[in-house]
C-alpha cells in the first residue's frame, strides 16, 4: 500500500504543478481582462444613471437603470445622420485602401520597373514623418482641387493616411506567397492584372482582414481632418458629432457616457465580427517582415 502511494507521488506532483500553473496563468489573464473591460463597463454603467447619483453612487450595479439617456443622446446628438456618414466614409476608405494598396504592393513585390525601390521607400519613410502642421497646405490644396466640403475629398485624404502601412503589410505578405500558383495562372493565360485579381487577392485575404480592421479603426475614430475639411452638418462623421455633443453636454455625465457608448459600439461590433480573420491574417505572416 505504502509502496503504491509512493509510486503515485510523482504523477500527483506533476498534476498539482500543472494545475497550479494553469491557475496562475488564468489568474493573470483574468486580471488583465478585468482591467481591459472595467473602463468600458464603467462607461456603460454610468450611462444608465442620473446626474444626481453618478458621482456619488460607486456601486457596480446601480439600483435604478435609466435607458432614457440613450434615447436622449440619440435624438439630441443627431447620431442617426452622423452614423450613416461614418459608415459611408469607413467603407469607402477601406475599399479604396484595399484596392490601391494591394495593386501597389503586388507591383512592389512581383513586378519590375525602374525606380521601384525609390517609390517603396518613399512610402515607408512617410509612415515615420508626422505632419502635424500640414493642415494649412492641405486645406489650400483641397480648395484648389475643389474638394473642400465634399465626401470624396475627405475619403481621398483618409485613403492617403492609411496607404503606407497597408502597402508595407501587403508587400511582406506577397513576398512570402509561393510562386507556383502564379506560374499556373500564367499558363492558363492570365495577365498581370488577372493574376493579381485571381491569385494574389484571394490568397491575401487574411492580410486584407488586418488592413480592413486597422483602417476601419482609424477612419471611425478620426475627427481632426473631418473638422478641417467638412463644413456641412450633413457630411459630418460620428466622432465630430461626438465632439459637438461633448461640448454641449459636458455637464451631463450620464448623457455624455451614453453618447460615447453609442459611438464606440459599432466599431466594437465590427471588430468582433472580424477578429477571427485578424489572428489568421497576422499568423499567416502578414507582419513578419
Amino acid at each position: 500500500m505504502n509502496k503504491k502511494q509512493a509510486d503515485s507521488i510523482p504523477i500527483n506532483q506533476y498534476q498539482v504543478t500543472g494545475f497550479f500553473k494553469g491557475f496562475l496563468i488564468h489568474t493573470f489573464l483574468l486580471i488583465v481582462t478585468l482591467t481591459c473591460l472595467f473602463p468600458l463597463f464603467w462607461m456603460v454603467r454610468s450611462s444608465l444613471m442620473t446626474n444626481q447619483t453618478v458621482f456619488v453612487d460607486k456601486s457596480l450595479f446601480p439600483p435604478d437603470i435609466h435607458f432614457y439617456n440613450y434615447i436622449q443622446a440619440w435624438t439630441e446628438g443627431n447620431f442617426g445622420m452622423y452614423f450613416l456618414n461614418s459608415v459611408i466614409y469607413t467603407s469607402c476608405v477601406v475599399f479604396g485602401i484595399v484596392l490601391v494598396s494591394s495593386l501597389a504592393a503586388y507591383a512592389f513585390s512581383r513586378l519590375q520597373f525602374p525606380g521601384k525601390n525609390f517609390f517603396f521607400y518613399m512610402f515607408v519613410a512617410a509612415m515615420m514623418i508626422p505632419l502635424p502642421g500640414s493642415f494649412v497646405p492641405l486645406y489650400k490644396l483641397m480648395n484648389d482641387l475643389g474638394l473642400i466640403n465634399t465626401r470624396i475629398g475627405y475619403i481621398l485624404c483618409m485613403i492617403n493616411v492609411g496607404l503606407s502601412l497597408s502597402i508595407l503589410l501587403l508587400k511582406t505578405f506577397f513576398d512570402k506567397m509561393p510562386p507556383d500558383l502564379e506560374d499556373a495562372a500564367r499558363m492558363d493565360g492570365c495577365g498581370r492584372l488577372g493574376i493579381w485579381w485571381n491569385v494574389a487577392l484571394p490568397l491575401a485575404r487574411p492580410a486584407i482582414a488586418v488592413i480592413v480592421i486597422f483602417n476601419s479603426l482609424n477612419v471611425w475614430n478620426e475627427y481632426i481632418l473631418a473638422t478641417l475639411l467638412l463644413n456641412d452638418k450633413n457630411l459630418m462623421p460620428l466622432q465630430r458629432g461626438l465632439m459637438v455633443f461633448q461640448g454641449s453636454h459636458s455637464v451631463d455625465y450620464p448623457l455624455l457616457m451614453a453618447g460615447l457608448t453609442i459611438a464606440a459600439l459599432p466599431i466594437i461590433l465590427i471588430y468582433l465580427l472580424m477578429q477571427k480573420h485578424i489572428i489568421k491574417g497576422l499568423s499567416s505572416g502578414a507582419i513578419v517582415g
Binding site: L103, A104, A107, F113, L131, S134, P137, L156, C157, I167
Partner: peptide
C-alpha cells in the same frame, strides 16, 4: 508595371508630398 503603383503614387504625391514640401 508602373501603372499598378500609379494610383497609390498619385494619391500619395498629392496629399502627402505637397504638404511635406510646403512645411
Amino acid at each position: 508595371n508602373f501603372s499598378f503603383v500609379l494610383p497609390a503614387v498619385i494619391i500619395f504625391s498629392v496629399f502627402y508630398i505637397y504638404p511635406f514640401f510646403e512645411i
